[in-house]
Nucleic acid binder design. Structure first.
Lengths: 155, 155
DNA sequence: CGCAGATAGTTGTCAAGGCAACTGTCTCGC
DNA sequence: GCGAGACAGTTGCCTTGACAACTATCTGCG
């Protein structure tokens, strides 16, 4: 049942799409997640959601660690932190060992928010992967990881 | 050192990354492709590359068909067309049946450019998937397609 | 016919993120 | 100790793409 949609470029179709396909899937996940957040009455962009998630899961860290964790530019991170701090979800504390750095930590409000959000997260990812079995999910993750490494360690 | 939050080991790990992972892989592909283009002396963004590709592969079509094909907003498409037309790669012709619409077609220069680009395309996609076997590539594509459908037809 | 609604393309506005410049701090080699 | 270079965070500038408003055209229904 695999050879669907082949006018002529059955081979081209698989090659051609990868970059595009990834974009489509990601866009759709982002959209779904933001819809889910909005439905829960939370006004958050996907990126902001990711930042909170990282903080909630890994605990306080510096802004640049956080930026690397979500693959965001340093400048962009500063602005997101402004925004999230302004809304009371996190705070910038001085780093103990390094006076250049910050220690970003969730406030109580931020932690409370994350309690709500954790469901959204699972619902969306569950919905996205609902047509994949457990083994397939693992394979998908594995393939993507390998592609990523292939692109990064370009020997 | 805290215990790496394995609430549900493999489960959480694979769940958590999907959205992010897709973004990472896509970003890397885009970066690689633009680097490849630049190395070939062609000053093109990924999106512009996609537009030319679609036109080269599928022939002339209207601007909105093109926009749908690359999943781009109509407004953004207008500006990309401005840019590509200004550089002589394509032209806007009046549509024969529909006076609202345009018929976007590659110029000779645009076609010539695509000849160069087709290699870049294959090189990058080949590099990205170099660690995947043929069957795995098909599966990856299949999984992504299924995830996409699961997200779109959310019954 | 004539009007309502959909669609094609354009334009203005906005938010997000990348990049570069800059300051302040750290680190390492001398 | 000190100077060079690396790194943290901030800010300004720019590009991109989404969204909304607008005009022009098409389609379908009475």
């Amino acid at each position: 049942m695999r050879g669907m949609e082949n006018d002529s470029p059955a081979f081209a179709a698989s090659q051609e799409s990868l970059g595009v396909l990834l974009g489509l899937v990601r866009t759709e996940i982002v959209r779904a997640m933001e819809a889910e957040l909005a439905a829960a009455g939370v006004e958050l962009r996907f990126t902001q959601f990711l930042i909170l998630k990282r903080l909630a899961r890994l605990g306080p860290m510096s802004a640049s660690e956080l930026a690397r964790a979500v693959e965001l530019d340093g400048g962009a991170m500063t602005r997101q932190l402004d925004h999230l701090e302004g809304r009371g979800y996190l705070r910038r504390c001085p780093h103990e060992q390094d006076r250049r750095a910050l220690r970003i930590e969730l406030t109580d409000q931020g932690n409370a928010l994350w309690q709500q959000l954790t469901d959204c997260n699972e619902r969306v990812l569950g919905a996205a992967q609902r047509s994949l079995g457990e083994a397939e999910r693992r394979r998908l993750h594995d393939y993507l990881t390998r592609v990523l490494h292939a692109l990064r360690d370009k020997d």
